[in-house]
Design a protein around this nucleic acid. Structure first.
Lengths: 243, 243
DNA sequence: CGTAGGTTTGACTGATCTCAAGTTTGGTGG
DNA sequence: CCACCAAACTTGAGATCAGTCAAACCTACG
């Protein structure tokens, strides 16, 4: 196996290539970024709300999520992340974290100093464009989540979350969207959709019985993607993958 | 009264000044931006979902909102905007609109060509920083809205929306946060909080009776800001106004 | 093989929605 | 200036989706 940081920076470069027109000098500049490697166990807290952050975190393997906590103690997960995602890119400009960041599974991470990223943006405008674009897509996903949590019924919300996960996973080269293993518990799904774990369970059971998905614990197979897409009201445009 | 575009660009410059350290050359570059003025009546559609957009829209006076529509016909408002906000700054990088944009009141608008803004960002990095920062704060607000709609009960959601409106209004120099006139109907509030207009009405009546607010139609006075803040679970940090 | 975390199921509760009707208000044309 | 109209607001009664509480069941891991 190749040194882990080569792998991940390669994945990052592939991803940024899709976001803007990068040339060889851009690729070299990314590969030359300073970083600090670390590993984290499942459930590890990487950033806590209100922390002052001076590094951005590149997820090299595993899964993570961002969340906020309400005064009543309820947790809202605001996004899920997978390998090659830069978590908390907003700390390029906003130093105080407005949300927490936690791993879902064991993970490998590369921490990149914010000043190095800022310098990179100054020197390589195409990279700045790609990163800015990435944060704008992030925002588009949040808008879709506001819609999801605000206007769809329980079953559709869960279906939508699953569709998004399946599609992003595929886009990151992590395998087929038709069948995959969920890294999150039903409680995570509940906190991401504004439901309770009990109700998430009931809805998953129902989707199973209706023949839309086939499920064994965390293992999910989407049996009828078109019905799933309709149930979820899933329109891929908000992910801005093309154009 | 001064020519309207001088007013509004002045307000924009003041706002961007708060987001990054701009110098006189930056100010002049902003003032020199090409633009097209227009006016719109209340309820006018400025951008529709899926439109290909080649101008960014600066709101010079009045109020507007962004929204998405679910397959079941439900509308989710994802943000409210007021004078000096740049609406749809994401179109700097994402050409296809993933949501609609509509006025709440009569409004004056300045449309700035995207290529002019992109050139400005290349030439004046401090302005690029300010605009990027603005879009990141936008995203932070969306995260807070996901939390609001996903985890708070009806009364808190509405209170939170009102707190945010009051604070942003004041920050834009539009008057006191203790008393103001709402530009939106109870139906707009409902669509922003994931509730029905009927229930919004009941909750507003309740807040009235509890002495938290005093209300006459659209006119709102917050009688007890501290109780309001607690009810809303409103923590201003997510607006990233300082630092 | 014991245990903790995760999943599943059941019975009951309740916050919010739906439907429906009545009231108020602001704007418009006569 | 007034009368009218449509939109917005208010109120009530009943329905429902999702929450709560509680217990049982798995199963991976130490």
């Amino acid at each position: 196996m190749a040194p882990p940081h080569e792998d991940a920076f390669a994945a990052l470069i592939r991803k940024l290539d899709r976001l803007a027109a990068l040339d060889d000098a851009d690729h070299r500049a990314i590969a030359a970024l300073p970083f600090r490697l670390s590993t984290a166990r499942a459930g590890a807290h990487l950033v806590r709300e209100r922390d002052v952050v001076s590094e951005c975190c590149l997820l090299m393997s595993g899964y993570a999520f961002r969340y906020k906590v309400a005064a009543n103690g309820n947790r809202q997960i605001v996004s899920f992340h997978l390998a090659s995602d830069i978590l908390d890119l907003q700390h390029l400009m906003l130093t105080r974290a407005d949300h927490g960041l936690q791993t879902l599974t064991d993970a490998r991470l590369a921490w990149i100093p914010v000043p190095a990223l800022q310098a990179l943006c100054r020197e390589r405008p195409a990279i700045a464009d790609a990163l800015w674009r990435d944060t704008l897509i992030d925002a588009s996903i949040f808008r879709e989540w506001v819609l999801n949590v605000g206007q769809r019924d329980a079953k559709s919300r869960i279906a939508h979350m699953l569709c998004e996960f399946a599609v992003r996973r595929e886009a990151a080269g992590l395998g087929s969207p038709e069948r995959f293993e969920l890294p999150m518990t039903q409680e995570h799904i509940a906190d991401a959709t504004g439901l309770t774990a009990v109700h998430v369970n009931r809805m998953l059971m129902a989707m199973n019985q209706e023949g839309i998905i086939e499920r064994n614990k965390r293992d999910v197979r989407i049996r009828d993607w078109e019905r799933m897409r309709r149930l979820a009201d899933f329109d891929i445009d908000y992910l801005h993958m093309a154009a």
